[in-house]
């Protein structure tokens, strides 16, 4: 009986406060649940059909794809660069790791405040710095003007937050690479770049795959950053923002839930795709 006694508190929490609610809400997406049009009634795929007819939702699908592409690419590239920097021991390495994980540990609520101070078109750091360096001669508006620039600037904020974990995950994989592999590479006269391409990158694939998956999950569900920095503007509205508008402003909860179900499924599918593409088991 002992094992059951040990796991039962956990099981109770997971079943009562995670699995039951999840199943319950999945069912809801097949119902018409509109506060302004009661009562709740079964409606089959109606919620899903209406979603795909909604131009705002379609626009957000495009935006969200851009968020995912930019976010996953940037966080992975930066993560790898940072992990390689930290691969071998050097003085101050542990301090640098603390600096690295700092953005990851900060509450999202504060992120909005911090980055407003950078992007602002009147007093922002970026404008001031570019101006001081004579790269621009008058202050620019970074957010809201051009769709791609806006999405890039917004996504950079999220990348700031998720990159530390990517870097750590890649670093973990790098630490498993035996040092003598590089030694033998060296004997062949391989350059640093070649060593990176032939040894580091292939052997870090498991870590990179996991890092990319966490980035996919975060970026497909991006909400705070566009909402805080760009309002409801179509230039940056994400899919999760539409779930908010549909359910909380239109009070069409069934449709809102259907959309969040779609996002969940998309998250799982894309994550699995990334794993299939990138992940390769590594044996040393």
């Amino acid at each position: 009986m002992l094992p059951y006694a040990l796991v039962s508190p956990l099981a109770l929490f997971i079943v009562a406060l995670a699995l039951v609610p999840a199943g319950y809400t999945i069912v809801a997406s097949f119902y018409k649940v509109q506060a302004l049009d009661p009562p709740t009634r079964f409606s089959g795929l109606d919620n899903f059909r209406r979603l795909f007819r909604d131009t705002a939702v379609r626009e957000s699908i495009g935006n969200t794809l851009i968020y995912v592409v930019i976010g996953v690419t940037l966080s992975t590239v930066l993560g790898i660069a940072m992990a390689v920097t930290l691969q071998h021991r050097f003085r101050g390495r542990s301090v640098l790791i603390a600096v690295l994980i700092l953005p990851w540990a900060l509450p999202g609520v504060v992120e909005g405040i911090v980055w407003t101070g950078i992007w602002d078109s009147n007093t922002g750091l970026l404008n001031s710095a570019l101006n001081s360096l004579h790269i621009i001669n008058h202050y620019q508006v970074f957010l809201g003007q051009h769709r791609l620039l806006t999405i890039f600037a917004i996504e950079l904020v999220q990348v700031w937050q998720i990159t530390p974990l990517s870097a750590l995950l890649v670093l973990a994989a790098l630490q498993n690479i035996p040092g003598d592999l590089y030694e033998s590479g060296n004997l062949d006269g391989a350059s640093a770049w070649a060593a990176f391409r032939r040894i580091t990158l292939p052997l870090a694939r498991p870590g990179i795959a996991i890092a990319m998956v966490q980035a996919v999950i975060a970026t497909l569900n991006v909400f705070d950053q566009p909402y805080i920095l760009n309002g409801a503007a179509p230039t940056g509205a994400s899919l999760t923002m539409q779930t908010y508008f549909i359910s909380f402003q239109n009070l069409d909860f069934g449709e809102g839930y259907a959309l969040s179900l779609i996002i969940t499924i998309a998250t799982l599918v894309v994550s699995l795709g990334v794993v299939k593409l990138v992940y390769r088991p590594v044996e040393f």
Binding site: L78, V84, T85, V99, L102, V114, G117, W160
Partner: peptide, 17 residues
């Protein structure tokens, strides 16, 4: 370069706040 990247990347926004 990597060390500089990590320092600038992580600390600039916090410093600015």
């Amino acid at each position: 370069f990597g060390i500089l990247l990590i320092l600038v990347w992580s600390l600039t926004p916090v410093y600015w706040a």
